[in-house]
Design a protein around this nucleic acid. Structure first.
Lengths: 234, 234
DNA sequence: CAGTGGTCTAGACCACGAA
DNA sequence: TCGTGGTCTAGACCACTGG
């Protein structure tokens, strides 16, 4: 372990153990320099990392203080569905149910968010894990940003995996909520109408240009989002 | 803007614009040093930040390369419910429905995760926003870790807010899924039985000691988790 | 084996802000 | 005012690893 990591984990340990409570003023940089016998840059690197982790706050002239955790900030991994299924050791398949080109519908808020005037490629389909429906997906792709998509064949590879390889996204917005399965979703997932489903919506941009919008519905009992987190102030 | 931030955003801009595609080898440190006329430590700081952001990968001898985005890593803020409601400008209230002390039940996986032999304080209650049920919460608090909780009064302040102030958590695990409202949940939230609900479960520890477990159920149409993200490889 | 990145040092100047 | 953190420099040594 490097020296700055040692300093960082030493201080982190004292904070996480409760020895240094929120509000406590940790030693000044020059004090840590003399106690560790190292350069100030090394101490500074460790403390800067603790700021990024939300564990401390620093004020000129006043010193560095253990932060007051306020908000639970959670790092949620939302991987590609194909990766989830293959990672479980199951057989993955995507089946396209519907595919056509159209314009954005004016009264649909989800599509307005993309602020896109050009043609959209709309694709509905189902992700299967070991022949069992895993998720139903409704997607639109902005052909003005991704013209190659109009000729791509989404057979073995789902549109999401294809897009990820062809034009990696740079900005995205997610919305997660619980819905009652509509007749379309229920039929695709082979579950009763109105069953609870976890719905993940994702808008994706590449340097400001809209790339795609997707709404994925998972049977409520077949998929959980799980995340392990550490304290992160504000 | 500082010099290292300038370098960082310059490079980030070229990556996000697509000028430097995944796999592209960005200039060596010594090349950036001469083009920006600065010290290597400054260039190194900028590039290290880009690694942390998942935008580049670095290999000794080979150089630094634009990363291939693979996983959607999403920073999801899960704030205290009271903060959500007050932040919306609505009136917050917590009503305790049930409160008693007991031991962990052997056949309940959620409680086993806490690995706790001592007494547990079990509290059920409802969060209200402007007199409307906003979330139903079932919580257990480990009295061996938080003995003060046994005498605390959760009237105006919910147990969650109280805990956050008294023993900030350091580790947590979340599970998010969709469920059908059970009769108990449905009655507390004043919604029909079997309505879809977003359920957030959270286990909380403080330096290895179990603090609390809570299961919060939100009416599916009344609460969304929303997050804005940027590309983050692996 | 040569060049890259990873880390560290011993200085320096400056801006901020608490006293 | 003046001590703190924020940033930067011009070196240095070393570990890793690709050619």
């Amino acid at each position: 372990m490097t020296l700055d990591e040692t300093i960082r984990t030493d201080i982190e340990g004292r904070i996480r153990s409760g020895e240094w409570r929120p509000g406590y003023r940790i030693p000044f940089e020059h004090e840590l320099v003399s106690s560790y016998g190292c350069a100030r840059a090394t101490v500074n690197k460790a403390l800067t990392a603790l700021v990024a982790a939300g564990l401390i706050e620093r004020r000129r002239k006043a010193g560095s203080f253990v932060a007051h955790p306020q908000v639970h900030s959670a790092m949620l991994a939302i991987p590609d569905i194909e990766n989830i299924i293959v990672g479980r050791g199951e057989v993955y398949r995507f089946a396209t149910a519907n595919r056509h080109v159209r314009k954005a519908r004016e009264n649909v808020a989800e599509e307005q968010l993309l602020r896109e005037d050009g043609d959209l490629l709309a694709i509905d389909g189902t992700h299967f894990a070991d022949m069992l429906p895993f998720a139903f997906e409704e997607r639109i792709i902005c052909l003005s940003t991704v013209p190659e998509a109009s000729t791509a064949v989404f057979d073995a590879t789902a549109p999401g995996s294809w897009l990820l390889r062809h034009i990696p996204w740079t900005q995205a917005r997610h919305r997660i909520r619980a819905i009652a399965a509509s007749p379309v979703v229920a039929e695709a997932l082979a579950i009763p109408v109105a069953s609870p489903c976890l719905q993940v919506e994702r808008w994706t941009w590449r340097s400001g240009d809209a790339v795609t919008f997707v709404r994925q519905s998972f049977p409520g009992d077949r998929y959980d989002l799980i995340g392990d987190f550490e304290a992160h102030a504000e």
